[in-house]
Design a protein around this nucleic acid. Structure first.
Lengths: 223, 223
DNA sequence: GTCTATAACTAGATAGAC
DNA sequence: GTCTATCTAGTTATAGAC
């Protein structure tokens, strides 16, 4: 009785779990297949290599997320509501929403954040492929929302915005312990709101060479 | 002719280089000792284990940095100049300054950021030991500088501030490529300025439950 | 498609000569 | 303190029966 699909998904589920906790290099195929309840050789049959498993586990979740990001961005741009807060919400909320599912969600967030900070050429190219369009589109949108901000500053701040996101996603034990009691990691609405407020204010901060005070929140501009 | 000190440092230098590029798990002791030009067994003689090498390489650089952070914080608090910008400068500049030394500086920044996002109990406890005092002191200082900000929000925002720092420190190939031309990664003054402006504005953003508009930069307050 | 068995290799750690 | 040689245990990957 062939059940190839099930085996493939069992492997990806286990990869998501174990890679997120131990990193790719920290997980042997033996541990992976034991967790998945499948045979060791099936990994090579279905994926060809350990690296390919990592890529597949990554792409399986990241593609719908990025599609939703672009969809949200399209929508707010059509509605003419593409202010900084709206753009950041389009960037953050699809990935934070996933965290609501305690089963696979938070697990994948950690996986994604770990991939992002892990070495290895195999993941590098995956990031390039999956994110290049998203980065380009969001950069253009933010540039339109912040016309006074010079491009070098904009890029640096996008970099910071990603840092806030990745670090929130990492949600290591260290972090959870530090903020214990202060904020519930499962409170994704609160987290999203806090991230958007913080980062939007950062984007609107006065840049070094700027002669214009562009740091006021809301719609009014200072002279 | 005994040259224990030199061997120890050669190992730590090689560890800093290789761990920063490939992660701890991605580097074998054989590759490490080949790079260092020392014998394989000397690692166990001097450190006892691979994990102990990682810890030692980490602590060697992080201790002076954290000492300088606390020193700077002490100074600005005595001078009564502990505003958000000053506190963030005390937090960021000692580690960014290190990046100026192209030899060991940038290398260690990547090592530190990688450790931060890597698994393994051995590093977890090192972070705990080395950072607990820094975190406590800076949280207290920021709370004083931002008396209107509730503690849960403050902690979340400190978390974001660390995310900006770690992500900047990671400075992966991906990042360098993306911001190519936009900003010089060796321009530490510009990077520091950009980080402080961005994060300070984030800290001053209006919090969700807040009735007070505290998001205005500079000294003026909105009604 | 799935399994067992094993090949081919690498890892961290150690013993003991020098 | 430094070296060679080696141990044990782990790894990825594959060949071939079912």
């Amino acid at each position: 009785m062939p059940q190839a699909v099930e085996t493939k998904d069992l492997i990806l589920d286990a990869a998501e779990l174990l890679f997120s906790e131990n990193g790719v290099e920290g997980v042997s195929l033996r541990a992976l297949t034991r967790e998945a309840g499948v045979n060791l050789a099936s990994v090579h049959y279905h994926f060809g290599s350990k690296e390919a498993v990592a890529r597949a586990a990554f792409c399986r979740r990241v593609r719908p997320i990025n599609a939703e990001r672009l969809e949200m961005l399209d929508r707010i741009e059509l509605e003419g509501a593409a202010d900084v807060e709206g753009i950041l919400t389009a960037l953050y909320s699809p990935v934070l929403r996933l965290a609501r599912s305690p089963v696979h969600g938070r697990r994948f967030m950690r996986l994604c954040a770990r991939f992002y900070s892990e070495p290895g050429k195999y993941l590098e190219s995956a990031f390039e492929e999956e994110f290049s369009e998203v980065i380009m589109r969001f950069e253009r949108a933010l540039q339109r929302a912040l016309p006074e901000l010079a491009q070098p500053d904009l890029r640096r701040r996008m970099h910071f915005a990603v840092g806030v996101m990745v670090h929130t996603m990492l949600d290591s034990n260290r972090t959870r312990q530090w903020t214990a009691g202060a904020c519930d990691p499962l409170d994704t609405d609160g987290t999203l709101d806090a991230m958007v407020r913080f980062v939007a204010a950062g984007f609107r901060a006065t840049a070094k060479g700027s002669t214009l005070a562009a740091g006021i929140q809301g719609t009014t501009q200072a002279a």
